[in-house]
């Protein structure tokens, strides 16, 4: 696939980072606001979708390897199950980090407030784990689908220019 015009590429280059930051915001605020690991992860995976569409598959597949996202997926899954095992002193999935201080365990403030990020214990950790997993999984699906397009087109297009999409 050929890259799109320079305008689209420039906008996507800038925009992709904002999308990624917003996705991370949705992931880490999962326990306070709508969204969470899966939704935020899907937003972050849009990063790869924007780059694939604007720059074309040849360039993008040269930039990243599927193994990179494969590692993401497994780090996420292992963190999730480890968070489950953290509570095994009481019960599996017990929220043992809540109210223990540190990054995840501050006390919930009383009365109306803007929401305190560090209060939810293992739930935030699990949100992050699911987020990492979904970023890896969805980006990998996108890359494989793109490779699949290549795979189908290859025999007919060898030596010729790649089939364009919108031009």
């Amino acid at each position: 696939m050929r890259p799109l015009s320079v305008i689209v590429r420039t906008v996507c280059n800038a925009f992709a980072w904002f999308v990624a930051v917003f996705g991370v915001y949705v992931i880490v605020h999962g326990h306070l606001s709508p969204g969470g690991g899966f939704q935020g992860g899907a937003v972050v995976a849009t990063f790869m979708a924007l780059l694939l569409v604007s720059h074309g598959a040849t360039k993008c597949l040269g930039w990243v390897r599927t193994n990179f996202f494969y590692a993401f997926e497994h780090v996420g899954l292992l963190t999730f199950i480890a968070a489950g095992f953290l509570g095994i002193g009481v019960t599996f999935f017990y929220n043992s980090l809540a109210l223990s201080g540190g990054l995840f365990g501050s006390a919930v403030p009383l009365g109306p407030n803007g929401g305190s990020l560090n209060t939810s214990g293992t739930i935030a950790l699990m949100n992050c784990a699911v987020g990492i997993e979904v970023v890896g999984g969805l980006s990998m699906i996108l890359l494989y689908m793109m490779q699949g397009v290549f795979h189908v087109d290859k025999p007919t297009l060898r030596g010729k220019e790649e089939a364009g999409h919108d031009r």
Partner: peptide, 20 residues
């Protein structure tokens, strides 16, 4: 006490860590 949870957690852990 945790046998029922372990029965599910062990194969899940095994699945997630298999590529490692």
């Amino acid at each position: 006490e945790h046998l029922p949870a372990l029965l599910l957690a062990l194969p899940l852990l095994g699945a997630f860590a298999a590529p490692v």
